[in-house]
């Protein structure tokens, strides 16, 4: 028997409660900033965030009911997008800067000490200014983040096993409930119907920018790894390698 369906408000409440805590680097970044110690700090922080991301995903209502294969694939596909939308959310009130954590924020010139990073930095800052322009609400933000997770591995053809097919139909239903919750959150802003549809389109268009920046970031991280620029921690390394496998 399926548990009683959650109302959009209840679903948003649960997704809000799933939010990870603020994550601190806990070590001052070594100065002067060099490519190596910026990358060291960013990868250290990312590895911590990944641990919290997995427990966040498990708290998204319905996620753990999906097949383990789908859970693994989704997280491997979208992890950097989820990190990036969180970064944008933290940076929304700091134009021109990226607030990686309360104790690690970088300006453009500080970021430019990492070869190839400034292009990604600029894309993230541009996307963040779009988020500021749209006055993204927290309810909308948590719905978008959940959609990034649930929408991430549509491109992967899963085996046609019956449990995989069952998991896929569960996934599509779950994605629709989060879409309903996002529509509900937008409707709360008191916009006319036409303005609501337009806002929904604007928010969903953000997701394609985030996917693009994430792919650029993944390539950059991969080439940092190939250059042995930075020691990658086990979870981050695993997620990077898995993403490369999926996208190749």
């Amino acid at each position: 028997l399926n548990p009683p369906a959650l109302t959009p408000e209840q679903l948003i409440q649960q997704i809000m409660e799933a939010e990870p805590p603020e994550i601190y680097l806990m070590k001052d970044i070594r100065r002067p900033l060099t490519e190596a110690n910026v990358m060291m700090s960013l990868t250290n922080l990312a590895d911590k965030e990944l641990v919290h991301m997995i427990s966040w995903a498990k708290k998204i209502p319905g996620f753990v009911e999906l097949s383990l294969l789908d859970q693994v694939h989704m997280l491997e596909c979208c992890w950097l997008e989820v990190l990036m939308i969180g970064l944008m959310w933290r940076s929304v009130n700091h134009p021109g800067k990226l607030i990686f954590s309360p104790d690690l924020s970088l300006s453009r010139e500080e970021g430019s000490c990492v070869q190839g990073f400034v292009e990604i930095f600029d894309m993230l800052v541009a996307a963040t200014s779009r988020v500021r322009e749209l006055k993204l609400q927290r309810e909308e933000y948590v719905c978008l983040k959940a959609m990034i997770l649930l929408n991430s591995n549509m491109c992967l053809t899963s085996s046609e096993g019956s449990d995989e097919l069952q998991s896929r139909s569960k996934l599509l239903r779950l994605l629709d409930t989060v879409t309903d919750a996002l529509v509900w959150a937008i409707a709360k802003t008191g916009l006319t119907f036409r303005q609501q549809y337009t806002r929904l389109a604007h928010l969903l268009m953000l997701l394609s920018h985030i996917r693009h920046v994430s792919n650029k970031g993944m390539d950059h991280l991969h080439c940092m790894k190939m250059k042995n620029m930075v020691p990658l921690y086990d979870l981050l390394l695993e997620m990077l390698d898995a993403h490369i496998v999926h996208s190749s």
Binding site: L68, L235, E238
Partner: peptide
């Protein structure tokens, strides 16, 4: 996928 699977399959605290 050792680390990811391990974190996915551990019961929430």
């Amino acid at each position: 996928h050792t680390k990811l699977l391990q974190l996915l399959t551990t019961k929430p605290e």
